[in-house]
Design a protein around this nucleic acid. Structure first.
Lengths: 136, 136
DNA sequence: TAGCGCTAGTCTCTTTTTGAGACCAATCAC
DNA sequence: GTGATTGGTCTCAAAAAGAGACTAGCGCTA
């Protein structure tokens, strides 16, 4: 059970200790913290389209390390967003596909992704402006 | 300029090098990577309600370190989601408020947060099931 | 008037997380 | 038999995050 130190989940953390304004604070964090990973959205975006195999995903997201791809997939699987199926082919291949829960999450999530694409220019502009005024 | 090593932005990274399926891949990542931080959504959620001062935010999110609060606020400000205003009071106080761009982002983002609150139980169930089957 | 707390941070040090890359066993084409 | 492909795991180095001390100016108070 201590097999994978990376997967060692934090102490099921800090039970909603936010005193004020805990309106959904802790459950939200519990769920969001996982899909907020650097790679999670990328993987979800891919698998929303169609199932992919491990190697395909790796080629799809070239700058993810194998280690992080494995871990991201495990985490997404653990939270029920994706399923993992092993095919007993000659070199066994593994396919990942989105679950219903995953699709349900991806619906609102895709809106954010959409927003990001649409407003990329505005954000870049804001950054430049900020960096300019920083030089002072 | 090398003042804050933490704020040193990555090499404006890996210019859209995703070969296949780059449908908004790089711009999305550029924007998402920032708001996907562990604390960003929490802070945005708070500031969506009303402006807050530094110390208020710290008390609101008790388990954020001062260091990370500062940095998260800087990052959000840099990307144009929030504004920072210093009041020349006796001990100078600083107020953070959401910009129009921030509100525009928060609209779809709040849907995801909503989803997280609504489906927390399902995710927890999925986790338990996964952890069970792992014991084998 | 010395001591304390408040403000919003920064600085340093330690721990955790991430990334790079080697390695694995089986199987296939050459 | 050499080399490539499959989906990983392992180790080690680098980067990021967390903990906590420290700052400066002002107000309160004993």
């Amino acid at each position: 059970m201590i097999a994978n130190p990376d997967r060692a989940q934090k102490p099921i953390g800090k039970p909603c200790d936010t005193p004020g304004r805990d309106a959904g604070n802790c459950p939200v964090r519990d769920v969001i913290d996982r899909i907020a990973g650097k790679w999670s959205t990328l993987i979800l975006e891919a698998l929303a389209k169609r199932p992919y195999r491990f190697g395909e995903l790796r080629r799809l997201v070239p700058d993810i390390s194998q280690r992080m791809l494995t871990q991201t997939l495990r985490d997404l699987q653990r939270d029920g967003y994706i399923d993992r199926e092993v095919f007993p082919t000659k070199p066994p291949s593994v396919e990942y596909r989105m679950t219903d829960l995953g699709r349900s999450l991806f619906e609102p999530l895709s809106k954010v992704l959409q927003w990001a694409g649409d407003n990329h220019a505005l954000v870049r502009a804001a950054r430049e402006k900020y960096d300019q005024s920083e030089l002072a």
